[in-house]
Design a binder for these strands. Structure first.
Length: 569
RNA sequence: CGGGGCGUGGCGCAGCAUGGCUAGCGCGCUUGCUUUGGGAGCAAGAAGUCGCUGGUUCAAAUCCAGUCGCCCCGACCA
């Protein structure tokens, strides 16, 4: 490809709309342009990177026996009603009507359509297992699209769905996909981790998120460097060490705490640390009002609570409800004398002489102990943070930021039951198919590569994702000898199957260098009069600071060696 | 949905408070000459319904109202 012929609108200045580095660089490097909030056009350079990611995905999925299909973006309401998601999905599901007033939507995901397809076509256990996938546009009407292509409304996703005859088959499919994902992200050149994610009602360790490690990531990963445990913040479990406590009973005392509602205010007023307090949160749930106790300086993890209690719906109670069930106003709730069911975080079990609300205006109680009230049990209910203990080895947790690029999930019978996707087993008996689903944010993967690889001059992309592998850069296009060699090198590399661009533009050298750096091309070959005089050209790797001088006869060989080396990583 | 900010040639901005000449600046773009190893120099150009609609006024980028778009922050922890 000739640089002069390619549509690469680079920018020196950053459009004000961009906040994060990947977004800024994608705009500056001419990868994408915004059409509307969260909706982007991919330009030739960006599309090349996107296609490279797609290619890796296709190869690895195919290797595992998954088969590519392509499903519609526009879908009828009926299927979504069947799965009950027409009601449940919320506003992210963009709905509208066609000319005949039929309700339709833009697909945010494809469980419904793929399940419909398979239930119609697959009848026998002999046709299972089956893994289908597609790389396709999704539309999710996000509350707040941001960070360019990282959280867009319209985006490219690879989604795969597995259908098995039984649990063990489904597990095998899951592991198969897990393996494929590991290979995909390795080939993309990422530094990443597979972390345990929330599995909701299904439970078990059958959901993993694939996180690209980057300081600018939106997600927090809790991990243990000792045993390798890793989970997202939502799920991360916390280990505990048993400890003797005094178990006093009835020693608590009322204290006046006028107007002190917040943990910090109460702590300050009483002259104690916030971790000597216990806060009592009142929730409205589908199982009635529920009280949750957690140490003053920690936060309830609602996902853990929901999973523990099997809650469908939960939300913090309003002031009115609080007054009704506790007898005191918001800010003064405590466990003593409460009539509603209570669950407590494990921390509470090991606390002694703590402070809690008095269920009365302007009153707290001090020197409270667990013997003073009744709870249904002590559980891991708080959100993990660094320094907490690993559930497996009791070493300390650390926190890292990451960008979620992939998510695999065992669905079980959720959709097959709702939509009646069945097959006949070898005994002639009708059974539900056991499903799994597996997603990769393809456009986000490109952005993640930039978040992970950049410097002050622009992108520093892994060779697997960079739009080109090599940039051949003649310093002066009017110098015949330079141009001749440049063309020669360019053609030779093309012949070797290397993805190369020749910067044949009649621009100043600085401009060409800046552009080359900006778009993150891993290998640059500079051909200039100065070096050529002695029979040399210069090779520079994007990620290295220094360049090397190479005899012009050896240049092809050196470049190929570099490309292969970079591909190995 | 709540709060904040922004909207002026392709990009980044100034001008607006206190309305008034031909709406400026930098980058980019076009042409010519010079230049050619890290975003060049000189010269000459092209390009803007000041987001849109309505209002106030002799006069609106500037004041008022409405509207659209974009960005940021937040969305309940007692």
């Amino acid at each position: 490809m000739l640089f002069s012929k390619m549509f690469i609108p680079t920018m020196k200045e950053v459009p004000k709309e961009a906040e994060v580095v990947s977004h800024k660089l994608m705009l500056r490097a001419g990868f994408i342009r915004r059409l509307a909030s969260g909706i982007y056009t991919w330009l030739p350079l960006g599309l090349r990177s996107l296609r490279k990611v797609e290619k890796i995905i296709r190869e690895e999925m195919d290797k595992k026996g998954a088969q590519e299909i392509l499903m519609p973006l526009v879908q009828p309401k009926e299927l979504w009603v069947e799965s009950t998601r027409w009601e449940k999905y919320g506003k992210e599901l963009l709905r509208f009507v066609d000319r005949n007033n039929r309700d339709i939507c833009l697909a945010p995901t494809h469980e419904e359509v793929v399940t419909d397809l398979v239930r119609r076509e697959v009848r026998s256990y002999k046709e299972l297992p089956l893994i289908l996938y597609q790389i396709q546009t999704k539309f999710r009407d996000e509350i707040r699209p941001r960070f360019g292509v990282m959280r867009g409304r319209e985006f490219t996703m690879k989604d795969a769905y597995s259908f098995d005859m039984d649990e063990s088959g489904a597990e095998a499919s899951y592991l198969n996909m897990y393996d494929a994902y590991m290979n995909i992200f390795k080939r993309c050149g990422f530094s990443f981790r597979a972390v345990e994610a929330d599995t909701g009602q299904i439970g078990g360790s059958f959901s993993h998120e694939f996180m690209v490690l980057a300081d600018t990531g939106e997600d927090i990963i809790i991990s243990c460097s000792n045993c390798g445990y890793a989970a997202n913040l939502e799920r991360a479990e916390i280990g505990f060490v048993e400890r003797e406590t005094s178990r006093k009973k009835g020693a608590f005392k009322r204290v006046e705490t006028p107007g002190k509602k917040k943990i910090d205010d109460v702590a300050q007023f009483l002259g104690v640390a916030p971790d000597k307090l216990v806060k009592t949160l009142i929730y409205n749930t589908d199982q009635g009002v529920l009280g949750v106790l957690v140490k003053g300086d920690r936060e309830v993890n609602e996902t853990k609570l929901r999973n523990l209690m099997g809650l469908e719906y939960m939300e913090l109670a309003d002031e009115e409800t609080i007054e009704k069930v506790t007898g005191g106003p918001l800010g003064f709730s405590g466990p003593i004398g409460l009539k509603i069911p209570l669950v407590a975080d494990m921390d509470i079990l090991f606390m002694e002489d703590f402070v809690a609300g008095g269920n009365e205006r302007d009153v707290h109680v001090v020197e409270v102990n667990v013997e003073d009230f009744a709870v249904k049990g002590f559980y891991d209910l708080k959100t993990a943070q660094p320094g907490d203990l690993c559930p497996r080895c009791r070493d300390k947790h650390t926190a890292t930021k990451g960008i979620e690029v992939g998510h695999i999930f065992k669905l079980g019978l959720k959709y097959s039951k709702a939509m009646n996707a069945t097959f006949l087993d070898n005994g002639g008996k009708e059974q539900y198919m056991v499903m799994g689903c597996y997603g990769i944010g393809v456009s986000r993967t490109v952005a993640a590569a930039i978040e992970q690889g950049h410097d002050e001059n622009g992108m520093v992309l892994p060779i697997a994702i960079a739009p080109f592998e090599v940039d051949v850069l003649p310093v002066n296009t009017s110098h015949a000898e330079s141009m001749e060699l440049a063309n020669q090198v360019y053609k030779a590399l093309l012949d070797k199957g290397i993805d190369v661009i020749l910067d044949d533009r009649d621009e100043r050298t600085g401009v060409k260098f800046k552009d080359c750096d900006l778009i993150g091309i891993p290998v640059r070959v500079t051909i200039g009069e100065r070096n050529l005089k002695d029979g040399y050209v210069e090779i520079k790797l994007r990620r290295e600071k220094e360049s090397e001088r190479v005899k012009k006869e050896d240049v092809i060989e050196r470049i190929i060696a570099h490309v292969e080396e970079l591909k190995r990583v």
